[in-house]
Design a protein around this nucleic acid. Structure first.
Length: 562
RNA sequence: UGACCCAUGGUGUAAUGGUAACACUACGGUUUUUGGUACCGUCAUUCUAGGUUCGAGUCCUAGUGGGUCAACCA
């Protein structure tokens, strides 16, 4: 193992890789590194899962090992096949492949049952007839030891018979449980005779009615790791206290010694990862669906337009450690912008239009101008954009009384129209309310983009759309969904009190250049000077809808604020 | 009133006993037919107090602060 990985060993990027390399170097692992991603199919994947997915698949990739997808489906009450499909879709979209290793803890129910029998036979497990409350009471508290169950000393034969009776459905739900016989006075609550099996006469999404007893997490998860010969089982910090139990099972069952390593889960400012709270946003109508672009679900971020590559570099840049953290959203957005800057085609869309008439450009005439699609990537070619006597510019790009640092259109000023000509202010028209409804300009015919001989200087460049040749689109402007970076950390307040009422602004009609008709769902586009956008899957031939992924960096806005 | 984990710039991560690095943010500046991008610059006596050592962010002790653990959830 050590020889085969010689080239990747020696530069661990975090404490987990360090531990893995220690294990390899010390000869504690003799097979290729094997990790797993173990979601429970009872909800949709979110940003936190993305981190776990990148970690598990990333480490296996680095050390030339494998990663299993394993559904931790041991609780039929909450789990469903619907989630299985959604989870698989999300992982694939993120760019990872579990190949043929799609496993289910429920596939191991028979084997797990055998393990339980083995523990009983070793005198290390017993059937307990106590009620849930009685068991909880006898458990003690972190500062006080628990007391022994009156059923703790049943004979092996009796336990075997009772456990079989549980499996055969002879007792009602909750009548008995199987518990491990560990240590009721351990300072670690998880070692105080943890429950291994409970009776639940419920249909399971995969095994149907075959079972009426189901294993608990501690018994199912670690043993599944062993069955799959997972070398390193990575989980979050709250499972630290489960580790002694995890190892106790391995030792007493004499099975493959998987190793559990815990890391701090990632918290991102303004994002929540509680399944229950995410569900409330949907149920209480704060968002439209699980994949609403404001949701921190993977499906939400996909619809928002975050490229999978950006999510991967984000998870990578965040790093792995064991301390509490709150990641600045700006880091996520920086990864998104960086990816989109390289890959997104540029287009001009006017969100809030203001008519501009080019007085010296003959009415009825029009021409096609060629504009490059992405200055960062020549291979993306160029497109034709039509130009004529009347165009739209952004309302905010014209001011009657402009401050000195304003580089846009204003009385006495000239600006460059991106890919077209330089125009200069002549006059403007107001309506009865004093609102500007039109600006009249002259253009410099010899200032055409790429062959400018006019010598006219224009400090600013504006995006624009030819009025006679536009496509109308709907634009959804998204902002952060909460007004507080950690909405669920306030003991005295419900997290929904921090719901951002302005998290969605709909622009029913924006004017886009024709090329927008070629936009594809999932492929980010830059609306020049306005931000990155992506076509929403609800679009159809009648109506094109675009979601704002993220805004451009705006130094003018900052300047203005001062 | 127990056990366990953690503590490095505004944020996140690194430095593996040899004189604090990288990224994001913020703030300056250069370039620019996107006020975008790119590029340059500025921003830390490593929670506190002792100790070990020629030398401590790193090891030891105590304190302080934060987190986790008492579901027939995962």
């Amino acid at each position: 193992m050590k020889e085969e990985l010689k080239d990747v060993l020696g530069s661990p990027r975090n404490f987990i890789e360090e531990e893995i390399e220690n294990d390899i170097n010390a000869g504690r692992v003799t097979k290729p590194i094997h990790t797993r991603f173990p979601p429970e199919p009872n909800g949709y994947l979110h940003i936190g899962h993305a981190k776990a997915i990148c970690l598990n698949f990333g480490i296996a990739q680095k050390y030339r090992g494998k990663t299993n997808l394993r559904f931790d489906d041991t609780n039929p009450t909450t789990e469903d096949t619907e989630y299985v499909d959604a989870i698989k879709k999300d992982i694939k979209w993120l760019g990872f492949d579990w190949e043929d290793r799609e496993y289910y803890a429920s596939d191991y129910f028979e084997e797990l049952y055998g393990y339980a029998v083995k523990l009983i036979k070793k005198g290390l497990a017993y059937v307990d007839d106590s009620t849930a409350d009685e068991i909880a009471d006898a458990k003690g508290t972190p500062t006080q030891p628990g007391t022994l169950s009156p059923y703790r000393n049943r004979t092996i034969e009796e336990n075997l018979q009772l456990f079989e009776g549980m499996r055969n459905g002879e007792y009602p739900d909750g009548a008995r449980v199987l518990r491990a016989k560990v240590d009721m006075s351990s300072p670690n609550m998880h070692m105080r005779d943890p429950v291994l099996y409970r009776i639940k006469k419920e249909a399971h999404h995969r095994t149907g009615d075959k079972w009426c007893i189901y294993p608990m997490y501690d018994f199912a998860h670690g043993e599944s790791d062993s069955i799959e010969e997972i070398t390193h089982s990575l989980c979050s910090l709250e499972f630290r206290h489960h580790r002694p139990l995890y190892n106790w099972f391995i030792q007493n069952l004499e099975i493959f010694p998987s190793r559990q390593i815990e890391f701090a889960r990632m918290n991102v400012a303004y994002m929540i990862t509680s399944k229950r709270k995410l569900m409330r946003l949907v149920q209480e109508g704060k968002v439209k669906s699980w994949d609403d672009p404001r949701m921190s679900t993977i499906s939400g971020m996909r619809r928002r337009g975050y490229p999978p590559a950006a999510l991967r570099t984000f998870c990578d840049k965040v790093g792995i450690a064991k301390r509490e953290n709150l990641i600045d959203m700006a880091l996520l957005e920086s990864c998104v912008k960086d990816e989109l800057n390289k890959t997104a085609a540029r287009l001009m869309v006017v969100l809030n239009p203001l008519k501009v008439t080019i007085t010296n450009y003959s009415e009825g005439h029009s021409e096609l101008l060629s504009i490059v699609n992405n200055p960062e990537d020549e291979s993306m070619g160029s497109r034709e954009v039509s130009f004529s006597h009347q165009i739209y510019i952004e309302r905010e790009d014209f001011m009657i009384d402009a401050p000195k640092k304003y580089f846009r259109l204003a009385p006495g000023k000239a600006v460059r129209l991106k890919g077209a000509y330089i125009i200069e202010y002549e006059d403007h028209v107001l309506d009865q309310n004093g609102e500007v409804i039109e600006v009249k300009c002259k253009y410099y015919p010899d200032s055409k983009s790429g062959s400018d001989t006019s010598g006219v200087k224009a400090k600013g460049t504006l995006h624009w759309v030819d009025q006679s040749n536009t496509t109308e689109i709907q634009v959804n402007l998204y902002d952060r969904i909460f007004t507080d970076p950690t909405p669920d950390s306030h003991e005295d307040k419900d997290f929904l009190e921090f719901y951002n009422q302005d998290s969605l602004t709909v622009i029913p009609t924006a004017y886009a250049e024709k090329a927008i008709c070629e936009a594809e769902v999932g492929r980010g586009i830059q609306f020049m000077r306005k931000g990155y956008f992506v076509k929403d899957p609800d679009s159809d031939d009648q109506k094109l809808i675009f979601n704002r992924t993220v805004t451009m960096r705006d130094t003018w806005k900052k300047l203005q604020a001062k």
